[in-house]
């Protein structure tokens, strides 16, 4: 299925903005509302926009199912490994918080402007879950598109 030229031009124009907005939500998950799941869903919406506007033969060169599945597996694996790294105290221990290392700055109590280099393992877990949701929801769209192409 291929939409009209108006829809395709709009999709080309909107796709990078949707991508940047999704990665913004993922990267600022520990400062503003949102997080991994919401940002991944927004990016998957961008993939769905391209998938609805174009034919499957046009997009299958750069939206491969194997790549999306690998992205999903890597995300889930990174999430579990980050949780296992806190085994010195307990599973899911926030071992990077207030440590001075990466994402390890201390947060002043109360209202503050929000510093990006804080949060401990939260930004890493946000990124992992975001990648996982992006791959999972994207591969469902691509699977459905490839099957619908064969029905017609």
């Amino acid at each position: 299925m291929k939409m009209s030229k108006i829809v395709r031009t709009q999709a080309n124009f909107l796709y990078p903005f949707i991508l940047i907005f999704g990665f913004y939500i993922i990267a600022h998950g520990h400062l503003t509302p949102g997080g991994g799941f919401q940002g991944g869903a927004v990016i998957a919406t961008g993939i769905a926009l391209i998938a609805v506007a174009y034919k499957y033969n046009d997009i299958k060169k750069w939206l491969k199912k194997t790549r999306l599945t690998a992205t999903e597996g890597i995300g889930l694996l990174a999430f579990i490994i980050t949780a296992i790294c806190g085994f010195g105290t307990s599973f899911f221990y926030n071992w990077l918080a207030n440590s001075g290392l990466l994402f390890g700055d201390r947060v002043p109590y109360g209202i503050n402007p929000g510093y990006l280099n804080t949060g401990g393992v939260l930004p890493i877990m946000n990124l992992a879950v975001g990648i996982e949701v992006l791959g999972g929801l994207g591969v469902i769209i691509v699977y459905m598109l490839s099957y619908v192409k064969e029905v017609k």
């Binding site: 918080a97 207030n98 994402f103």
Partner: peptide
């Protein structure tokens, strides 16, 4: 948890 967003933490 050193994060502003309590929901995410």
């Amino acid at each position: 948890s050193a994060a502003n967003n309590i929901v995410t933490s």
